[in-house]
């Protein structure tokens, strides 16, 4: 499944989608950045409530396919600008991390 298809299926608010055709493989949920750094795999969708600029660096370095920001977490303009600059796929939803993960479980299995 591609990032674009996933965004449509989950009715996400797309904030930055420089690589819409990127394939998604699995998912990881977490808000502690170091924890995510150590455990998220390349091509995972990363589900988090964190929106500070460091999340973009973590997304870039772990090579996740997309970041889904949950609970309608506020997105600082500098984070969004950085995501666009670094080519990070970024979307947001009002749903909780749990709800998104449940739906991801159905879509990605």
């Amino acid at each position: 499944m591609t990032v674009r298809q996933l965004s449509e299926s989950l009715a996400l608010e797309v904030l930055s989608l420089p690589e819409p055709e990127r394939e998604v493989c699995g998912a990881y949920a977490g808000d502690l950045l170091s924890w995510v750094m150590g455990r998220a795999n390349a091509d995972n969708v990363w589900v988090t409530v964190m929106t500070n600029a460091n999340t973009v660096a973590v997304a870039t370095l772990t090579d996740v396919s997309m970041v889904i920001v949950t609970d309608g977490s506020e997105m600082p303009p500098e984070t969004l600008a950085l995501a666009k600059e670094k080519g990070v796929n970024l979307a947001r939803t009002k749903a909780s991390s749990y709800e998104i993960c449940v739906r991801l479980g159905g879509l990605l299995s």
Partner: peptide, 14 residues
């Protein structure tokens, strides 16, 4: 900010 999980040095070693 999402840091301070005490994973930095262990992640580096790992």
């Amino acid at each position: 900010l999402g840091f301070g999980a005490g994973m930095g040095l262990p992640n580096m070693k790992k």
